[in-house]
C-alpha cells in the first residue's frame, strides 16, 4: 500500500503535533527536534513525514509534494494556497492583530504597515476601505513603528507581552489563529480512503 506524505511545520508547534500523532498511535521512532534529518517514517510505514519550514508547508501541500500538512492558519492565510483545510488541531492558539503606538488608527490617506504577513495586512485594510503601503519584514516587527519605518504593524500575538514591552498597544484584532490540518485536493480524490481514515482518527484523538 502506498503511504501518505505529511508535511510538518518546524518551530513552536512541531513538538505538540508529534505528541498529538502519538496519541493516535502514530510513532516516528527516529524523530527528535534537534535532529538534522528531514524525512521520517512511522513504524507501520504508512506515513512519511517531511519536516519543513512553516511558511513552506502550504506550498508543499498545494503542489502535491505532500498529501497533507500540519501548519498554522497564519501561513495558510498568507500563502492563499488552494487546499482543503479540514481540521482545527487547536494547538498554538494566537491572534492576528494591528498594533501601534497610539490607542487607535490615525485618520490618514495612506497608512504604512510593517508585517511578516503583507497579504493578510492588505486584505484586512481593504475590507475597511483604508489604503495602505506594506513593508515586508522577517522579524522584530515591533521595532518598525518605534523607529518610524511604519505607522502600524500587523503581527501574531500569543499573550501580547512582546507588544507591550516595546511600548505598543493592540488596536484591532483581525483573526484567531491555530494549527490546522490541510489536504491536497488531488490526494483527497486519489488517496481518499487513507486520508479520510487519518483525519478521522486524528479527530477522535482531539476529543
Amino acid at each position: 500500500m502506498s503511504y501518505i506524505t505529511l508535511a510538518l511545520a518546524k518551530g513552536r508547534t512541531a513538538k505538540s503535533s508529534i505528541s498529538l500523532l502519538k496519541n493516535i498511535d502514530i510513532h516516528f521512532p527516529g524523530f527528535h527536534e534537534e535532529s538534522r534529518k528531514l524525512v521520517f517514517y512511522d513504524k507501520e510505514e504508512k506515513i512519511k513525514l517531511v519536516f519543513v519550514k512553516a511558511v513552506d508547508v502550504p506550498t508543499y501541500v498545494e503542489k502535491g509534494a505532500a498529501d497533507i500538512g500540519i501548519v498554522g492558519k497564519d501561513n495558510i492565510l498568507e500563502s492563499q494556497a488552494d487546499v482543503y483545510e479540514m481540521l482545527d488541531l487547536k494547538l498554538g492558539k494566537c491572534k492576528f492583530v494591528v498594533a501601534g503606538k497610539s490607542q487607535q488608527l490615525e485618520e490618514k490617506q495612506k497608512l504604512t504597515i510593517a508585517s511578516k504577513y503583507p497579504v493578510i495586512a492588505i486584505k484586512h485594510f481593504q475590507k475597511k476601505g483604508q489604503s495602505i503601503e506594506t513593508v515586508k519584514l522577517n522579524g522584530s516587527v515591533e521595532l518598525a513603528p518605534l523607529i518610524g519605518l511604519a505607522d502600524y504593524i500587523v503581527d501574531i500575538v500569543e499573550t501580547g507581552n512582546t507588544i507591550n514591552e516595546n511600548g505598543l498597544t493592540i488596536i484591532e484584532e483581525i483573526e484567531d489563529i491555530s494549527t490546522r490540518l490541510i489536504v491536497n485536493k488531488a490526494s483527497f480524490a486519489t488517496k481518499s480512503e487513507n486520508i479520510r481514515q487519518f483525519i478521522n482518527s486524528l479527530k477522535s484523538g482531539l476529543e
Binding site: 501541500v61 498545494e62 503542489k63 502535491g64 509534494a65 488552494d82 491536497n184 485536493k185 488531488a186 490526494s187 480524490a189 486519489t190
Partner: peptide
C-alpha cells in the same frame, strides 16, 4: 479530474 502526484486538476 485528478491524477496521482499532480496537485491540481
Amino acid at each position: 479530474g485528478f491524477a496521482d502526484s499532480v496537485g491540481k486538476p
